[in-house]
Amino acid sequence: MAYVGGGPGVLDGVASSEPEVSDGLKSFGAVLKALREEAGLTQEEFAPQVRYSVHAVAKLEQGKRFPSVRFIERAGTVLEAPRVLKAAARHLTRRQGLASWFVQWAGIEEEAISLYAYECRAIPGLLQPEAYIRAIFERRLPPVTEEQLERETAARLERQQLLTQKPNTAFSFVIEQALLERRVGGVGVTRALIDHLLEVGKLRNVEIQLMPLQQEDHAGVDGQMYLAETPDNQWIGYTEGQRSSTLITAPKDVSVLLQRYGKLRAQALDCRATVSLLEHMRGAL
């Protein structure tokens, strides 16, 4: 997604995959660490109280992860400093390397216990290997600088850690076969993409389904969609346009998306058939 699909975190061959650290994130992290230490808590003691991993808390204190609204609320309560933390986060309007209009969904993504995606424009960002990410960014108009390319690639790769860091979150992806047939970036990039999809598809919490080129009954004619189930078991929808996005929260509208996504899963190839098709496509390259 632009940022989820062709784009909705990466690294060059040798550099770190960590996103660039902004002054705002570093400042928030420093405040968080100072409050935690003042409360007499270690990261290991603090993490379970805010329902985050120790690794995630460390990233937040280092300024390498964007704090979600839910985290700020929980941490403020635990540390008895809600106003201080909210003030520290007030100017964090965007995450490094992510479009400003995508940041809110990125936060929802991190908290989701179920995440569904249907893409007809580009491979979902959470499933893009580095070669594919770079192929997309290198062809973007207006052209990006080398610094922008590295920063945005790193941000997308960092987001992909959700797939392994959240083993209890169910991820479902329905992807149009045509996106692979397009061969963005050439044969080498497409081969790397297929290999990546086959590997990620082995994860117990990830389901990848291809929508075949020919499908007379197709529920996705209105375009791509993303759906997330919050820890409170509420569903939120998300769609993207040209340099814009829409968050869908009205229950009746979210219900429509859930119905359509359910139909898309039934119309697409199942996971085993998808693996067979991917292997066949790779062999034909």
Score class of each variant (00 low, 15 high):
residue 1 M to R: 12
residue 3 Y to V: 14
residue 7 G to E: 06
residue 7 G to S: 14
residue 7 G to I: 12
residue 10 V to I: 04
residue 10 V to M: 02
residue 10 V to S: 11
residue 11 L to P: 06
residue 13 G to T: 10
residue 17 S to D: 12
residue 19 P to V: 06
residue 21 V to W: 02
residue 22 S to V: 03
residue 23 D to N: 04
residue 25 L to H: 07
residue 26 K to E: 14
residue 28 F to G: 07
residue 30 A to I: 01
residue 32 L to C: 11
residue 32 L to A: 04
residue 38 E to V: 01
residue 39 A to D: 03
residue 40 G to W: 06
residue 41 L to V: 04
residue 43 Q to R: 14
residue 43 Q to N: 02
residue 45 E to R: 15
residue 47 A to W: 03
residue 50 V to F: 00
residue 56 A to V: 06
residue 63 G to T: 07
residue 65 R to Q: 10
residue 68 S to A: 15
residue 73 E to G: 06
residue 76 G to H: 07
residue 79 L to W: 03
residue 81 A to W: 04
residue 84 V to C: 11
residue 88 A to C: 00
residue 95 R to I: 13
residue 96 Q to V: 15
residue 100 S to G: 03
residue 101 W to E: 14
residue 106 A to M: 13
residue 112 A to C: 09
residue 116 Y to E: 10
residue 117 A to K: 05
residue 120 C to D: 01
residue 122 A to I: 06
residue 124 P to S: 02
residue 128 Q to H: 01
residue 128 Q to V: 02
residue 129 P to I: 08
residue 130 E to Q: 15
residue 133 I to W: 03
residue 135 A to F: 08
residue 135 A to I: 11
residue 136 I to D: 07
residue 139 R to N: 07
residue 139 R to H: 11
residue 140 R to G: 01
residue 141 L to K: 12
residue 144 V to C: 01
residue 144 V to A: 04
residue 151 R to S: 12
residue 151 R to Q: 13
residue 157 L to E: 01
residue 158 E to T: 09
residue 159 R to D: 08
residue 162 L to V: 15
residue 163 L to F: 01
residue 163 L to D: 00
residue 173 F to N: 11
residue 174 V to Y: 02
residue 175 I to D: 04
residue 175 I to Y: 05
residue 176 E to N: 11
residue 177 Q to C: 09
residue 178 A to G: 12
residue 184 V to G: 01
residue 185 G to R: 14
residue 189 V to F: 00
residue 195 D to S: 10
residue 196 H to K: 13
residue 196 H to E: 10
residue 197 L to V: 08
residue 207 E to A: 13
residue 211 M to K: 10
residue 213 L to D: 03
residue 213 L to W: 05
residue 216 E to S: 06
residue 217 D to Q: 09
residue 221 V to P: 04
residue 222 D to V: 14
residue 223 G to P: 13
residue 229 E to T: 13
residue 231 P to R: 05
residue 232 D to T: 01
residue 247 L to A: 07
residue 249 T to I: 12
residue 250 A to R: 15
residue 251 P to Y: 06
residue 251 P to F: 04
residue 257 L to I: 05
residue 260 R to W: 03
residue 264 L to C: 00
residue 268 A to T: 09
residue 268 A to G: 06
residue 270 D to R: 12
residue 270 D to L: 09
residue 272 R to P: 00
residue 272 R to G: 08
residue 275 V to N: 11
residue 275 V to G: 00
